[in-house]
């Protein structure tokens, strides 16, 4: 039963602080960004004279528009990578481990790195992946390779390994949570009714874990699409994402141009999020 007392303000004033903060400090700046992307950029200054010049530059020079394709490619690779590596872990913890205590311990172990500093996690990959890195030493000691692998650090491969490791928790956490809530009796009952493994997966596990999958995908997508630190560090600036374009352009005070890249990135994110929310409306899951 909802309170029916008073006018709109006395009943709903609590909506005001939060929405004011978001509209003033998030929505308005984003609109400003769209506006600035049409400003005139000179080498040292920007003027609020409207032009599409920055937009033309962005889509005519390969160094910029390739950043768009790089961003989408890296996003897809990391998204698939985190799911391929993360979902089996979630299935193991959520479905195969029966004891609640063990389940909790295994899940905590899997998500605790989330608790540590993001930048530290990137830095930690450097001594792993380098020419003299731990990985090469181990592989050579094990006689799997005879020469150190050189494509691990300061390459796209290294960057993707790092990203997958960093963002894996966002898939494992939500998906495990949803799977562990599935009543084993439901699966048991389905099997008694003659459902095969494929059918159980499609008709029970997939729908029941869908909110977890979508939550994980949103987390990973949002974080990867906005990335610039991991490429800067682990790819040795070889891979340029939209985030890197923005950082570089702001660094050289090209605000209008940074804004163009910003708007492009906003559109990409909006499409991805809207697409994912079509699968499950998360509002209903809270």
């Amino acid at each position: 039963m909802s309170g029916q007392r008073g006018n709109w303000f006395t009943r709903h004033w609590q909506l005001i602080p939060g929405s004011a903060w978001m509209i003033l400090f998030l929505i308005a700046p984003l609109i400003m960004m769209i506006y600035v992307s049409f400003w005139t950029q000179t080498s040292f200054d920007i003027k609020p004279d409207l032009t599409t010049k920055s937009w033309q530059t962005f889509f005519s020079q390969p160094v910029y528009y390739s950043a768009l394709w790089n961003t989408i490619r890296v996003w897809l690779i990391v998204l698939v990578g985190t799911f391929v590596l993360g979902v089996p872990v979630a299935i193991f913890i959520g479905l195969f481990v029966r004891s609640n205590t063990v389940q909790t311990i295994l899940l905590v172990l899997a998500v605790i790195p989330f608790w540590t500093s993001f930048l530290v996690r990137i830095v930690a990959w450097k001594p792993m992946l380098g020419q003299n890195g731990a990985l090469n030493i181990i592989l050579m000691k094990a006689h799997i390779i005879s020469e150190p692998l050189s494509f691990l650090l300061y390459t796209e491969v290294g960057m993707i390994i790092g990203m997958i490791q960093i963002y894996l928790v966002f898939v494992v956490g939500p998906v495990t949570f949803m799977l562990s809530r599935i009543d084993p009796n439901v699966i048991e009952a389905a099997r008694d009714l003659g459902a095969g493994t494929g059918r159980i997966f499609k008709d029970i596990l997939l729908p029941l874990s869908r909110p977890g999958l979508v939550t994980g995908a949103i987390f990973v997508s949002v974080l990867v699409l906005g990335e610039f630190a991991t490429p800067a560090s682990l790819s040795g600036r070889k891979v340029n994402l939209l985030g890197n374009v923005i950082v570089t352009q702001v660094g050289s005070l090209k605000w209008a141009f940074a804004s163009v890249a910003g708007v492009v990135l906003t559109v990409v994110i909006a499409l991805v999020i809207v697409g994912l929310l079509r699968i499950t409306d998360l509002r209903k899951e809270v």
């Binding site: 400003m32 949002v222 985030g243 702001v250 910003g262 906003t266």
Partner: peptide, 11 residues
């Protein structure tokens, strides 16, 4: 949802 780099840029 909005990437940090965009929030920072806008502000």
């Amino acid at each position: 949802i909005v990437p940090g780099v965009l929030v920072g840029l806008g502000v």
